Simulated assay, not measured.
Amino acid sequence: MPRSDATSPRPAWLYREYEPVGVDLGSPAAVAAYDRHQGTDPDADDALLERLGVAAGTRLVDLACGTGSLVVQAACRGAEAHGVDVSEEMLAFARARAQRSSVRAHWHRAGFLDYEHRAEPADVVTTKSALHQLPDFWKQRALLNAAGMLRPGGTFYLWDVVFSFEPSQAHQHLHRWINTAGHPEGQGFTRADFEAHIREEFSTYAWILEGMLQRAGFDIIALESRSPTHGEFLCRRR
């Protein structure tokens, strides 16, 4: 399978996706801690893949795959599973996870903006907890790229920090999120981590994402806001 690593020169004006914002994940120890803090759960991954109709022979691409749990679980179901991430440390962790599970997956060092899917068009493209690293202009570019790698009628799934509250209520909802989600040091993502997310990363409103998805060529099949600060979109490529 040809590799889709980002080895060709990129325009000087392109967003610096290989310098991600937020929690420092530049070491194996930091990546292992991230995996613990995310609460990786193969059963939850499997339930999502079942919802998305991922089975033997399905072609799946997980953008910003992180530690690779969803990709490995898809491979366990017999899918042709591709994991894409800008982080070498994340991909090393993901490869080790696949090896422990005795499955084969395809790993690509690339980002939302420059990944080129050189295999057959995907049936399913997913991204979880990552699109918020891009400002809105670049989110739109990323969604166009995701649509381009999907077959017509293919499924796109997005889960992330997405704000469904009214803009005038942002202060109270963000304070509530920080106060309830933060864990003591060493036991998960801390209050300071969530404060940094709001201050330095680029989570946006659900109504803005709806417009971006539609302009990228998706029909939104379902939108669920599990809380005022998190949501998921299930889409079909037109």
Rank of each mutant, 00 (worst) to 15 (best):
H82S: 14
H82V: 01
G83Y: 09
G83N: 15
V84K: 04
D85M: 09
D85P: 13
D85T: 11
V86A: 07
V86H: 05
V86L: 00
V86I: 15
S87Y: 10
S87P: 15
E89F: 12
M90W: 14
A92Q: 11
F93P: 03
A94V: 05
A94F: 11
R95N: 08
A96V: 10
R97F: 02
R97Y: 04
A98Y: 13
A98Q: 10
A98K: 03
A98I: 02
Q99Y: 00
Q99W: 03
Q99T: 15
R100I: 02
S101H: 13
S101A: 15
S101T: 06
V103K: 06
R104C: 13
W107M: 05
W107S: 02
H108K: 10
A110H: 08
A110L: 06
A110S: 15
G111W: 08
F112S: 00
F112G: 02
F112K: 02
F112W: 11
L113K: 06
Y115Q: 07
E116K: 08
E116F: 04
E116N: 05
H117D: 09
R118A: 14
A119E: 14
A119W: 03
E120P: 07
A122H: 01
A122Y: 02
V124T: 12
T127F: 01
K128D: 04
S129G: 04
A130H: 09
H132W: 00
H132G: 03
Q133S: 09
L134N: 04
P135V: 10
F137S: 11
F137Y: 12
F137M: 10
W138K: 06
W138V: 02
K139H: 04
K139E: 12
Q140P: 06
Q140H: 13
R141L: 15
A142L: 04
L143N: 01
L144T: 14
A147W: 00
A147D: 01
L150K: 01
R151P: 00
R151N: 11
P152E: 14
G154H: 05
G154C: 12
T155F: 08
